[in-house]
């Protein structure tokens, strides 16, 4: 390592120690001891800065934080699913002894032996790590794929196809909310009948034209081509809206992290 690297490391270690001391001295909570709390808040702040440092350029601090995240999150998901589903759902159906050990009430039901089926399939899935008999994991994979396909088939057909077609069949010539004729009250009020009707037309034509754009079995010429053109415009507005919302979301996350640094770590704001 270069000398400058050692200097940077030493400065970081010093800053960490100073921060640890001050955070421990000013901790008022009762969840952890002040020493642990000071260390943890400082660690959280330094890890935040390590990730932010990537905007300058890739560096060892960022790589360290990235690898730390991978390890921690993999174990996190494993532990959560073990306690919630294996201990919470499986063990109370297959073993009285283990149920008692884990403090779970045993569920004495006649068909409990069937719960060995997912255990066997689960073990077969783990055999994927073996190069010789890894192929048997396909049986478990087939169960997962079959379940997903069976669940998706009906749900998507109903909610994302039939319900959507049905919701697109909106009144295109509606009277106003208070029952008056539409033409007697043409205003651009956001809650007015004219705008309500305009919205319905946009939805009706927009959906049809959008679908026409995605239909590639016929050449996009003539009336079909013009509808496809309108479909593109609708999709462009959709993507523009999505972009606007994405910007909003990402800024919020940055606000969240900077608020942590300024408030919880540095104590600059109350």
């Amino acid at each position: 390592m270069k000398r400058s690297t050692y200097i940077v490391m030493a400065v970081m270690a010093l800053l960490f120690a100073v921060s640890w001391y001050f955070k421990a001295a000013t901790y008022h909570g009762n969840v952890m001891s002040p020493l642990v709390a000071g260390f943890m808040i400082t660690l959280a702040a330094f890890l935040t800065l390590a990730i932010i440092s990537f905007v300058y350029q890739d560096n060892p601090f960022y790589k360290f934080a990235e690898h730390l995240f991978v390890g921690i999150s993999a174990a996190f998901w494993m532990c959560q699913s073990f306690w919630s589903t294996i201990v919470g759902n499986l063990i109370p159906r297959i073993s009285t002894g283990l149920s008692k050990y884990f403090g779970q009430p045993y569920r004495d039901e006649p068909w409990n032996f069937v719960y060995w089926l997912p255990v066997i399939l689960g073990i077969l899935l783990l055999l994927r790590l073996s190069s010789k008999i890894g192929w048997v994991s396909r049986w478990a994979l087939a169960f997962i794929v079959g379940t997903t396909a069976g669940l998706s088939f009906i749900r998507y057909l109903r909610s994302d196809f039939m319900e959507q077609i049905s919701s697109t069949m909106v009144p295109l010539l509606a009277a106003g909310n208070s029952g008056e004729s539409l033409l007697s009250n043409i205003t651009l009020s956001a809650t007015g009948p004219f705008v309500a009707m305009l919205t319905n037309w946009v939805i009706f034509l927009g959906v049809i034209c959008g679908i026409v754009y995605f239909f590639f079995s016929k050449e996009h010429t003539g009336l079909f081509g013009r509808a496809s053109r309108v479909g593109i415009w609708i999709l462009m507005i959709t993507f523009g809206a999505a972009f606007g919302y994405t910007v909003m979301g990402r800024i919020t996350l940055l606000v969240g992290r900077l608020t942590f640094l300024y408030k919880d770590w540095l104590g600059l704001i109350s």
Binding site: D160, F161, Y213, I234, F239
Partner: peptide, 19 residues
């Protein structure tokens, strides 16, 4: 309005694809 229409067109396409 327009966003709903565009998203619905995409949703119907994806829905049919998944089915």
């Amino acid at each position: 309005g327009p966003n709903l229409a565009g998203q619905r067109a995409i949703m119907i396409g994806i829905g049919l694809g998944i089915v």
